[in-house]
């Protein structure tokens, strides 16, 4: 396959967006009946669903932590989520992302509230078009709030990348595959804390900083959308 041109002459990306434009996003909470909390998140063509169970008794007991809750997290892609069918068996990539998701979510949960218990966070990627780990993080964070589990803040994240030398916000699949850099960033915006940061590809230290600035702006928009999503569920009930 030949590398396509990622930025056109008039500065537009392969999907017509400007470099600093986010994809269309859709979020919904309480989409599953059984789970204690759940959320569905769409970023462009990426679609993921997250479910939270707990807090509940930890099994097996010997893995329980004496002073805080343990988290069991799973990031998994459905076989039909990608162009080529993906085997349902967990890949090394899914193992790495499950670990990263768990660590990032642990940064937000008030862990000391449920010693010796566990919280399960499961995500299934239904459609993959770049940004699946970030969509999973957003969905998991909303699901935790939906489950009534105390968290320091909602988590919002977006990937910044470099396509044909141009810094772009919220990579799509082509930019992810053919671009020169892919940097997922996630924050707890009210706390001003960066809780997820990775880079694969190449960036100068200057591009790195500009990229973080770009990500911060995108994250603010996404964070507000998350709050709106939660408010929508309660709007009918607020008294005014």
């Amino acid at each position: 396959m030949q590398k396509p041109r990622l930025i056109s002459d008039d500065g537009k990306r392969t999907d017509g967006r400007r470099p600093d434009e986010l994809r269309q996003m859709k979020m919904e909470v309480g989409v599953l009946k059984n789970a204690d909390g759940s959320a569905l998140v769409e970023m462009g063509n990426t679609k993921v669903i997250s479910a939270v169970f707990g807090p509940k008794e930890m099994h097996p007991k010997h893995l329980a932590l004496p002073d805080r809750v343990a988290i069991r997290a799973r990031y998994h892609m459905t076989p039909f989520s990608t162009d080529e069918r993906k085997s349902p068996a967990p890949t090394r990539r899914e193992v790495e992302i499950s670990k990263i998701l768990r660590e990032t979510l642990e940064s937000s949960v008030i862990l000391e509230m449920f010693p010796r218990a566990e919280i399960d966070v499961f995500t299934e990627v239904i459609q993959a078009d770049a940004g699946t780990r970030l969509a999973s993080l957003i969905a998991s964070s909303l699901a935790l709030a939906d489950a009534g589990i105390p968290i320091k803040d909602l988590i919002a994240g977006v990937a910044v990348g470099k396509a044909d030398g141009v810094l772009v916000l919220d990579l799509n699949e082509q930019e992810d595959m053919w671009g020169e850099a892919d940097m997922p960033v996630a924050m707890m915006p009210s706390m001003g804390q960066v809780v997820l940061l990775q880079l694969n590809g190449t960036m100068s230290s200057d591009e790195f900083r500009k990229g973080l600035e770009m990500a911060t702006k995108g994250i603010e928009v996404i964070y507000n959308l998350e709050k709106e999503t939660l408010k929508k569920k309660f709007a009918e009930y607020s008294e005014e």
Binding site: Q193, V194, V195, L197, G201, T202
Partner: peptide, 21 residues
Amino acid sequence: DLNIVGIQKMGNGGFTMAEID
């Protein structure tokens, strides 16, 4: 040439933007 070719934040907890810088 001092270009950044990889970043991985590990563990729970967060960095402020100033700390990352």
